[in-house]
Simulated scan of single mutants.
Amino acid sequence: MSGYRFDERLRMIPTDHAQLAARVAAARPVDFAEFRKIGIELMLLGRYAEALDHLDRALELADSDYRRMSVWINLGDVYRYWGDTVTAETLYRRTVDQASDSEILSFALQHLGKALAEQGRLPEARVHLTEALKLRVVEGDAELIESTRTTLDLLEDLPTTLPPKVAALLGADLTWSAEHEGMSGGVAHVEGAYWVKRGPCAAAEHARLNWLRGKGIQLPDIAVFEADVLVLADAGLPSLAAEPTESVGAVMGALLRRLHDIPVAECPFDGRLDVVLAQARRRVLEGLVDADDFDDDHRELTPEQIYQRLLAERPPDEDLVVAHGDFTPSNVLDGGLLIDLSGMGVADRYRDLALVERDLRADFDADELSAFYAVYGLAEPDRRRLYYYRLLDELC
Rank of each mutant, 00 (worst) to 15 (best):
Arg309Tyr: 08
Ala51Asp: 06
Arg281Leu: 08
Asp382Val: 05
Leu360Cys: 07
Ser100Asn: 13
Ala207Asp: 14
Ile38Ser: 07
Arg283Asn: 14
Ser184Val: 13
Met43Ala: 14
Ser100Phe: 09
Asn210Trp: 02
Arg9Pro: 00
Glu191Ser: 15
Ile40Lys: 03
Ala193Met: 13
Pro164His: 03
Asp293Gln: 14
Asn331Tyr: 01
Asp382Glu: 00
Thr130Pro: 03
Arg67Asn: 12
Arg94Asp: 02
Leu353Val: 05
Gly214Val: 09
Ala227Thr: 10
Lys215Ile: 05
Ile217Val: 12
Asp16Trp: 01
Tyr307Glu: 04
Thr15Leu: 12
Leu209Asp: 06
Tyr48Cys: 00
Ser177Trp: 05
Gly214Thr: 10
Leu212Ile: 08
Asp319Ala: 12
Val190Thr: 12
Arg383Trp: 03
Val231Thr: 03
Ala312His: 09
Leu61Gln: 08
Arg257Met: 10
His189Cys: 04
Ala115Thr: 02
Asp101Cys: 11
Asp292Cys: 01
Glu246Lys: 14
Arg198Ile: 02
Leu52Met: 10
Tyr350Asp: 00
Val138Asp: 15
Phe107Asn: 14
Asp348Gln: 01
Ser64Phe: 06
Ala374Cys: 02
Ala312Glu: 15
Ser102Leu: 12
Pro268Asn: 03
Ile217Asn: 07
Pro303Leu: 07
Leu144Cys: 08
Pro315Ile: 01
Gly377Phe: 06
Trp176Pro: 02
Ala33Ser: 14
Ile339Glu: 00
Val96Asp: 01
Gln110Lys: 14
Ala99Thr: 03
Leu237Ala: 07
Gln98Val: 10
Leu355Met: 15
Ala280Tyr: 04
Met69Ala: 14
Ser177His: 15
Arg5Phe: 08
Asp65Ala: 14
Arg36Asn: 11
Gly271Leu: 00
Pro244Leu: 06
Arg299Glu: 15
Ala207Ile: 04
Tyr373Trp: 15
Asn210Cys: 15
Val284Leu: 11
Phe327Asn: 05
Met43Thr: 11
Phe372Glu: 07
Trp72Met: 10
Ser370Asp: 15
Ile104Ser: 01
Glu368Met: 09
Ile73Asp: 05
Met43Tyr: 05
Thr151Ile: 12
Arg358Ile: 03
